[in-house]
Simulated scan of single mutants.
Amino acid sequence: MKVQMKTFSFPSSLTVVLVSVLLAYIYTSNPYFNLETVKSINIPASLSHLTASINTYLINLLSASPPTTNLTISPPTTTITPSQLAAMSGRVQLPRRILKTLLAKPQSEGAGATVRRSIGTPSLRSLNPFLMLDHFSVSPGAGFPDHPHRGQETITYLLTGGMDHEDFTGNRGTLNPGDLQFMTAGKGIMHAEMPRQNPDGSANVGLQLWVDLPKELKYCEPRYRDLKAEEIPTVVTEDDKVKIKVISGKSYGVESLKNLAYTPVVFYDVEVQPGGKVEQEVPKGWQGFAYVLEGGDVTFGDGKDGKEKKVSQWHNVVFGNEQEGDGVVARVDESETKPGRFVLIAGQMMDQPVVQYGPFVLNSQEEVYQAFVDYQSHTNGFERAKGWKSEIGKSMVH
């Protein structure tokens, strides 16, 4: 991936206020911010000094297609017999190369939340078309209060607990364990994501993946698509060694619900018992990764020529996107005492520049600057942000 540093000369029409807004975000280094935070930043006197400071941080990350057709969902659970499994084995002739593995270290995010971020860090700025992957843990009293987005999609997968969401279009809902939400920010959305109070006081845990939008859809209307746990087809082997939730894509002949996101993505939640093995095809040329959620170590690769890697919990495994790669092979050794659980995700790559400041992801610096202006002036998609405050976010106001 080519990283290019560029300088930028401010157009005369941009004001010092806009520059201060940009610096406010840079100084806070937080993808979740609100207008109050921006207004609290003093405007420095020297515009030239401001421009130089901003240029230090301007990085272009250089590295779609319309949504697919709806198909009928498969039965909730499909059991694969040993004979069927044997017939399907060997279908991944050439497993994807492992390019790198990295540990997702915990860090603070939002308002009191903790995330383990593996994509969107200095070690892995982005992974075309993916912008960020957070494994979040949010206790009551913490959360992600009112904040904006433009130009990307988010996929939220709740593992335990409950999360409420609310936005300025009037959408409201709750995610329960196993549910997903596909949110398209498009030209602009302002929303809040807050945890439910669990009876035992435990944290609410899940994954949130940020996906880039193709340039022709950057300014589409915002939308939500929910996928409930009971709607997700599941594949299990008769010996119970492998269980796959087919969130998006196709696995062992079982196909998921379609048309949930604009950017084509396959998404599998895989659990492999000790002694089990899984072979999952991945579309050729798509960028893929696996993130180990919990349990025993998972070995990726087929072992040929020593090309395999044992990976433990909270590690992200980045695969090559070679055209000849069929997919991913993974197993959990018989010696492990726990099953290994991981998500396997891949997306169609895009040939377009990526310029990102926190929740704004566009194709040029000028578009990012305009997003700040639109957000502050409540125009061009952010009209409904004026005076809007979520009900669920009020618990964070002191």
Rank of each mutant, 00 (worst) to 15 (best):
K187C: 06
M194S: 05
P11K: 08
Y27S: 08
L293P: 08
W210H: 02
K100L: 14
E308V: 02
Y375M: 13
S364K: 01
A229F: 06
G249P: 12
R331E: 10
N60K: 11
T15L: 11
S395M: 15
N321P: 09
S29W: 01
E281S: 14
K386N: 09
N259F: 04
F33K: 11
V368S: 03
H398I: 12
L158T: 06
V368E: 13
V282R: 03
T169S: 15
V211I: 15
P274A: 11
G110T: 05
V397W: 12
Q370A: 15
Q323K: 13
Y157W: 13
K307L: 15
L260R: 15
R196T: 14
Q323M: 10
K338S: 11
G347N: 02
Q152S: 11
P233Y: 01
S202N: 09
D269P: 06
L131P: 10
S364E: 04
D239V: 13
A24I: 00
E308A: 08
F182T: 02
L58K: 06
H135W: 02
L207F: 15
A371E: 03
Q323V: 15
Q273W: 06
T77W: 01
Y291D: 04
G295E: 13
H49P: 07
G161I: 00
V21D: 07
D179V: 09
Q370M: 14
E294A: 13
K6G: 09
L344N: 08
L23K: 01
G120H: 09
V332G: 00
V355D: 00
Y357I: 03
G206D: 01
N30W: 00
G381A: 01
E36N: 14
E324Q: 08
A385G: 15
S53C: 06
E334Y: 10
I119D: 00
A64K: 05
E221V: 14
Q107P: 00
F372H: 09
T263C: 01
K338A: 14
A113V: 03
S48P: 06
G381K: 01
S251I: 03
T234P: 08
M1E: 00
Y25T: 07
D269V: 15
F168I: 07
D179C: 04
V236P: 08
I345W: 03
G301S: 14
F360M: 11
D134E: 06
K277W: 10
Q365R: 10
